[in-house]
């Protein structure tokens, strides 16, 4: 069951936020309220899953046959940006409620290191299509978990007795560090 261990590995052990440092900006910026964090997580999951499939297919079926793999970076970023624009337009037209809750975060995902990072990692790790799909699901689910837990912790930090110079971002970062310790502790799982 390699796919299962790949999934667990990417979600928990090699969690993209806490061990590979993708998606730090949204982590610090969006995670003040748990509900917002969850909405961000949905949006990110949707985009990363689609993006990893599309970029994988484009790399192996368009760029490699034509011998222009040096255009991989430009291709990926343009595809991701177009996908985000398309998804946002689609949501605006079909479902205003969903757009109201999670559409706010969609433009943010274009410059999210996680999307481009997953696309590039899928290629450099030499995954098959199925493995790329699993990675495209595991990575954003891991991200959502972390950002949700982080948001709940931050809610309580707001009313906790934090020293003056640590209030706000510094204590949030140290919390993230402790969470990273926890994640590193289960490194032996896979």
């Amino acid at each position: 069951m390699e796919l299962v261990s790949l999934f667990i590995g990417l979600t928990f052990v090699n969690n993209v936020v806490l061990s590979k440092f993708y998606a730090i900006c949204p982590l610090l910026g969006v995670s003040k309220k748990p509900k917002n964090a969850l909405n961000m997580g949905y949006a990110v999951t949707f985009v990363i899953f689609l993006a990893s499939i599309i970029t994988y297919l484009l790399y192996y079926h368009v760029l490699t046959p034509l011998g222009i793999t040096y255009l991989d970076l430009i291709t990926f970023i343009l595809v991701i940006a177009s996908l985000v624009q398309f998804v946002e337009m689609f949501l605006k037209k079909t479902s205003p409620e969903i757009y109201k809750s999670m559409g706010v975060y969609l433009p943010l995902i274009t410059t999210n290191c996680a999307v481009l990072g997953v696309a590039l990692d899928n290629i450099s790790a030499g995954y098959t299509l199925i493995e790329a799909m699993v990675a495209g699901l595991a990575v954003p689910i891991g991200f959502t978990l972390v950002i949700y837990v982080f948001a709940t912790i931050r809610e309580r930090l707001e009313i906790a007795n934090v020293p003056e110079s640590f209030k706000g971002t510094p204590i949030a970062l140290i919390t993230a560090g402790i969470m990273a310790c926890a994640i590193a502790g289960i490194a032996g799982l896979v």
């Binding site: 900006c25 949204p26 610090l28 910026g29 969006v30 003040k32 706010v104 975060y105 433009p107 943010l108 274009t110 410059t111």
Partner: peptide, 9 residues
């Protein structure tokens, strides 16, 4: 959404 300073958003 005043969370981050990402100006591309």
């Amino acid at each position: 959404c005043v969370g981050c300073n990402n100006i591309a958003c």
